[in-house]
C-alpha cells in the first residue's frame, strides 16, 4: 500500500513540467526515505535525479519499496487537471498496475480521482559517486534561465568559464558571437539575488544549450540554481526544493574533436 499526501500539489505539477520534456518514461521509486526518480534522456547525454523526502509530505505511507513506471507526459497531463493550491494524494495498492491521483481543492468541497496505468520500464540506474567539484556557482535561477534562452538564439553550445571574479557564458553562431559575464556579488541583504562562486580551480567547459534550456524548466521550483563543474565530470545543475529535496540534472560536456 502506497499513500502519499502532499499539501502543495502545485509543487508536484512543477516537478513534472521540469522533467517531461527531457524524459519520456521513467520509474518512480518509493521507499521510506522518499519519492525519487533517476532517468536519462533518450540519447543518454543528460540525466535527471529527483528526490522528494518523506518528511515533506503531510502523510507518507510506503509499506515496501516499490518502483512504478510512468509516462511523464501522461502524468503531467493528469496533474495539470489539479489546481495549484490543491492537495494531491498518490495512491497505489500492492501489485496494482495503476496509480490514483486524488486532488482536493483548498475548501475540500471538490474531490477528483484520476487513475493512470503504470508501465513496465526497463531502465538503467547509474551510480553517481559524491564528487568534489572544481567550481561551484550559485546564482538566481531566473537569471540562468534567461542567459540560456538568450544565448540559444545565437548558438547551439555555450562555453561556461568560472574564475574567482565571476562566471562567463559564451556562444558563437552564424550571425556572430555573444558573451555574458555575471560578476560575483557581495550583497548580504538579498541573498536570493546573489551570484556566489566557490572555486578550487578555474573551469571552462562546453555544453549543448538545448539541454540547458530543458533543465531550466525547473526554474519555478527554486529561486537559486547551483551549477557544479569539474573538467573531468558531467556538470550538475541543482534546484533545491524547499523542505522536500531537489531536482538535479547531470549533463556530459562536449569535447574538441
Amino acid at each position: 500500500m502506497l499513500e502519499l499526501r502532499l499539501l502543495q500539489g502545485g509543487l508536484l505539477k512543477k516537478v513534472l513540467e521540469a522533467m517531461k520534456d527531457l524524459v519520456n518514461d521513467a520509474n518512480f521509486d518509493c521507499s521510506p526515505t522518499g519519492f525519487s526518480l533517476q532517468a536519462m534522456d533518450s540519447s543518454h547525454v543528460a540525466l535527471v535525479s529527483l528526490l522528494l523526502r518523506s518528511e515533506g509530505f503531510e502523510h507518507y505511507r510506503c509499506d515496501r519499496n516499490v518502483s512504478m513506471g510512468m509516462n511523464l507526459n501522461n502524468m503531467a497531463k493528469m496533474l495539470r487537471c489539479a489546481g495549484n493550491d490543491d492537495i494531491v494524494t498518490l495512491k497505489a495498492d500492492d501489485g496494482s498496475d495503476c496509480i490514483t491521483f486524488m486532488f482536493e481543492n483548498p475548501s475540500q468541497d471538490k474531490i477528483a480521482d484520476f487513475e493512470m496505468k503504470l508501465m513496465d520500464i526497463d531502465s538503467e540506474h547509474l551510480g553517481i559517486p559524491d564528487a568534489e567539484y572544481q567550481s561551484i556557482v550559485r546564482m538566481p535561477a531566473a537569471e540562468f534561465a534567461r542567459i540560456c534562452r538568450d544565448l540559444s538564439t545565437i548558438g547551439d553550445t555555450v562555453l561556461i568559464s568560472v574564475s574567482k571574479e565571476g562566471v562567463q557564458f559564451s556562444t558563437r553562431g552564424d550571425m556572430g558571437t555573444a558573451n555574458i559575464v555575471c560578476r560575483r556579488t557581495t550583497t548580504v541583504d538579498k541573498p536570493e539575488e546573489d551570484v556566489i562562486i566557490e572555486m578550487e580551480e578555474p573551469v571552462s567547459l562546453t555544453f549543448a544549450l538545448r539541454y540547458l534550456n530543458s533543465f531550466t524548466k525547473a526554474t519555478p521550483l527554486a529561486t537559486q540554481v547551483t551549477i557544479s563543474m569539474s573538467s573531468d565530470l558531467p556538470m550538475v545543475i541543482e534546484y533545491r526544493i524547499e523542505g522536500m529535496g531537489y531536482i538535479r540534472y547531470y549533463l556530459a560536456p562536449k569535447i574538441d574533436e
Partner: peptide, 14 residues
C-alpha cells in the same frame, strides 16, 4: 562543434 560525450561514459550502472 565538438563531440558530445554520453553520461554513461562517466557513471557506472548499478
Amino acid at each position: 562543434k565538438g563531440a558530445q560525450l554520453s553520461i554513461t561514459e562517466f557513471y557506472r550502472a548499478t
